[in-house]
Computed example of a mutant assay.
Amino acid sequence: MTTNAPRPEILRYTAFSSSPEGGNPAGVVLDATGLDDAAMLAIAAELGYSESAFLTAPPADLGGEGGGGNGAGAGRAYTIRYFSPKAEVPFCGHATIATAVALAERTGPGELVFATPAGIVPVAVTEEGGAVLATLTSVEPHTEEIAGTDLAEALAALDWPAADLDPAFPPRIAFAGARHLVLAAATRARLADLAYDFARLEELMHRLDLTTVQLVWRESATVFHVRDPFPVGGVVEDPATGAAAAAFGAYARELGLVPEDAVLTLHQGEDLGRPGELTVTLRAGDPRVHVGGTGTRIV
């Protein structure tokens, strides 16, 4: 940001909840024109949320209207970047949802296209019963094995005995815009008891290029409770994690843990006193994952 440039308007929204006290807060800058990396990082650090989102004009080859938050009409397109208080991240689901809700409140519902560092992410925004609902479509996902030594280190950092894992859910690294280690707890009590070694887990996550660790407990065939340690972002725990939800949906489908056509409900944030709900939709023949939820402005 140039010395004489005015400070941009910084909005605060929460995603995956219709209440400002629920879901995951995000900073949203609808016109980040003129902000350099250092300025965006400084704003994210000042806000202290797990991520903040910054919009600028779309790439020339993307087309569509938009840029700087001034676009209108169907197919509005933007470049979006995400910063945690410590670093830039390639993709953030909750900040994407928060930004889409903020745009819809200004220019109406419709189709949005975000050019993220991880790839192109379309978002459909609708109004239902007075609430704004945004659903993102992930980049194409994949999963990969985790080495036994790395898994052992992750469990040691979490202070989770291997016997406390659910054997029906093999540990994997899953990607749908960012990399997440998926670990499933055998009981809700195990998931609720989270007190980990911040520095130790952070070191492992940097080495494996992980954004969060997606901790999961299965309540029923389609209902899950999740928690996401996020030490690499300078945050102990993320209250609602859209990118991890997309990665988990891909993981669950690839391993045959849910049908190819499925709608999953993920509850997150309850243990933090910020309950949120994420809807993960899987469609047969569609490799991408769709993650949706409500959002609202934090006054």
Rank of each mutant, 00 (worst) to 15 (best):
A39I: 06
A39Y: 06
L151N: 03
D193M: 09
F54S: 08
R179I: 05
A246H: 01
S138A: 05
A186P: 02
P161G: 02
G273E: 11
L194R: 04
T294I: 04
P122M: 00
R288I: 01
R76F: 08
L257I: 03
E105I: 10
L41D: 04
D31K: 14
L11G: 11
G119Q: 00
A244W: 02
E9H: 12
P25T: 13
H180D: 04
T211R: 10
R253C: 08
G293P: 01
T56K: 09
A195S: 04
R188G: 14
T79D: 14
A44P: 06
S84K: 02
G67V: 09
G249S: 08
P170E: 07
T211G: 06
L183S: 02
G249I: 06
P275T: 05
H206M: 07
F54E: 02
V101A: 01
A192T: 07
R7I: 08
Y78S: 03
R81M: 07
L55A: 08
G75D: 12
H180E: 02
L210G: 12
V232M: 01
T3H: 15
T281P: 10
F224H: 02
T143E: 11
P59V: 06
A284P: 13
E128G: 02
G71K: 09
A152L: 02
A124Y: 10
E202L: 06
V291E: 03
P167K: 00
P58R: 03
P20I: 10
L272F: 05
A157R: 09
I80V: 14
R76A: 14
V223I: 15
A60I: 10
V280C: 11
E127R: 09
P161M: 11
G269A: 03
A247E: 00
G22F: 01
F54V: 07
G177C: 09
G68K: 13
F91R: 08
